[in-house]
Design a protein around this nucleic acid. Structure first.
Length: 546
DNA sequence: ACGGGTTAGACC
DNA sequence: TGGTCTAAC
């Protein structure tokens, strides 16, 4: 049915076909440490947090080491593995660490007196995102090491500029003024075959691949970090693609390959279905893979997940995803948390509150120089062993000494809370809701200047306590060359199969996309607006009831 | 292996 | 609005 229609539609609308890149840094924390210490990527390295590891580089994975492994096990499996503990802040307690003097890690990283700080990775991340924004303002920070980029505009420009050369790959390279090395990244792309009808589409996505290659090469040459990317027509498929050929490779997901991709894809791999919802769906439908879940009717989805989510899921299991890339670069909240076995004294609570307040204030200070904003909401979250979890918020206190001001207020909240009880399990201080302070001038330079000495800051900020400090490992400068030789493009076999359902749905997606574009600020951040739009986009009854 | 620190968003 | 809950990395 759709053959001619689809062809026509392809030629008239392809120039505005969405091109989304999902970019994912490979084992990010491990890479940050490896590069910082000037190690070769072939050196096995794990990032340690207390007794476990939270990141494992690819060299260490060869030894069968995985995340969440005990340190003991890691040493067993790979005695030479470099273990780098995450930074910590707190009051090192001399008496309890005496016995561990032989082990500097334990001395500096006592779980009972310090908390983890992920600042080093946040800063590395911030620099990468700065770079990403220069490639597309439509860049969404999905996590500390993941981003979605909507490069549709750029792709369209290239397409128009190279039209008289029939958008050959050579002309695309030229238009993007790609160097040899950038081209090498492009040629490493893992493609899936296209159907004939999809040829124009393949060009579109290929241009996205060229841009992804440029970006990944830039990240590598500037920071020595390798990354993986997925290039596709929507966020869902792009995300799937980036994980397909890790590390250090990019994967193009062609529409034709989607049925194949979904065939054996565990339902829970789909974004949003990794938790309880996914489990519930498995129970109610017996579907284990995305493909199997395609047999579930819209009515049945209605029953299982409700009216609002039914269409979303119906689309999701078909690889269809209307969600726009939100231009969102900076965080909306900042949180410092610590969990412990069982803290039973007010003295203990005060100690942790001071540590958390200190860390939070440090981060707020940086945030303010970088983003010209101040928080106006302050939240204290506490939970006790009997799973009593609660939080209280107040307007952000504006004291002269921010650390003690936050500490005092947090203490007051705990003492006056009617549901707070010992022993306490977990404590967090956070801020949300920011107000702009001034214009943005000089913010980036301020952020990039070298960190001041933690120890000094501590003495200035917290006089009453002698020894909050941050552990440090020496950093050395190295520029090791981890570029790997290009491989041949792999080709994935795809069965010939009926695609009408998919193509039709895809067409709907593009039409919705074009509509959103013509309405202007489709990526606006206003919640109510975007929710309204989302609903409109997802109301496709006339199509799905057919 | 559900562990520890973060973020975001939905819901009432 | 505030607070709780879920999900993701």
């Amino acid at each position: 049915m759709a053959s001619d229609e689809y062809t026509n539609f392809a030629h008239s609308d392809l120039e505005q076909f969405p091109v989304i890149i999902h970019l994912d840094l490979d084992c990010f924390y491990a890479q940050v440490e490896s590069v910082r210490l000037g190690l070769d990527p072939s050196t096995p390295l794990c990032v340690q947090q207390w007794d476990g590891v939270i990141a494992v580089n690819y060299a260490a994975r060869e030894y069968g080491i995985s995340r969440h492994e005990r340190i003991e096990k890691v040493k067993e499996k790979c005695p030479n593995c470099v273990l780098v503990h995450v930074e910590t802040v707190g009051f090192p307690d001399q008496s309890s660490s005496r016995e561990n003097v032989s082990n500097p890690d334990l001395l500096n990283h006592g779980k009972s007196e310090t908390k983890v700080s992920l600042d080093r990775y946040r800063e590395a991340s911030a620099k990468i995102f700065q770079l990403l924004f220069s490639y597309s303002e439509l860049c969404e920070k999905a996590s500390i090491d993941e981003a979605y980029l909507d490069v549709s505009e750029q792709v369209q420009d290239i397409l128009v500029a190279t039209r008289n050369q029939r958008s050959s790959i050579g002309s695309i390279f030229e238009q993007l003024s790609m160097t040899e090395k950038e081209r090498a990244y492009y040629f490493e792309t893992i493609f899936q075959p296209f159907g004939k009808r999809e040829l124009p589409l393949s060009q579109i996505l290929s241009i996205g691949c060229a841009i992804a290659a440029k970006i990944r090469y830039a990240i590598y040459s500037q920071f020595n970090y390798t990354s993986s990317a997925g290039i596709a027509e929507n966020k869902l498929l792009a995300k799937l693609g980036s994980s397909l050929n890790k590390p250090n490779r990019q994967t193009l997901i062609s529409p034709k390959a989607v049925p194949f991709l979904l065939e054996n894809l565990p339902l829970k791999k789909l974004r949003g279905l990794g938790g309880k919802l996914g489990t519930r769906i498995e129970e109610r439908t017996n579907a284990k893979t995305a493909k199997e879940a395609q047999n579930v009717t819209l009515e049945k989805w209605n029953e299982i997940v409700g009216r609002e989510n039914a269409e979303w899921i119906y689309n999701l299991v078909r690889g269809i995803d209307y969600s726009p890339v939100n231009a969102r670069g900076i965080t909306k909240s900042i949180l410092a948390a610590k969990s412990f076995k069982a803290e039973c004294s007010w003295e203990g609570m005060e100690k942790w509150i001071k540590i958390l307040a200190y860390e939070l204030c440090e981060r707020l200070r940086k945030d303010e120089t970088m983003n010209s904003r101040r928080p106006i909401n302050f939240i204290v979250h506490y939970s006790s062993v009997g799973s009593v979890s609660s939080s209280k918020s107040i307007p952000f206190p504006n004291g002269k000494d921010r650390v003690s001001s936050l500490s005092r207020n947090a203490m007051k909240i705990l003492k006056t809370a009617n549901n707070f009880c010992f022993p306490c399990n977990r404590l967090s201080l956070s801020v949300t809701k920011f107000l702009k302070t001034s214009s943005d001038l000089g913010s980036i330079a301020a952020f990039l200047k070298p960190q001041e000495n933690h120890q000094k800051l501590v003495e200035e900020l917290v006089q009453e306590s002698s020894s909050i400090k941050s552990s440090e490992t020496t950093a050395e400068e190295t520029a090791s060359n981890l570029q790997q030789p290009p491989e041949k493009c792999k080709v994935v076999e795809v069965e010939q199969r009926e695609e009408e359902d998919y193509i039709l749905a895809q067409r709907m997606q593009v039409e919705e996309w074009l509509k959103l574009r013509s309405e202007g600020d489709y990526n606006c951040d206003d919640r109510r607006e975007s929710r309204k739009k989302k609903r409109r986009v997802q109301t496709l009854d006339h199509f799905f009831h057919k």
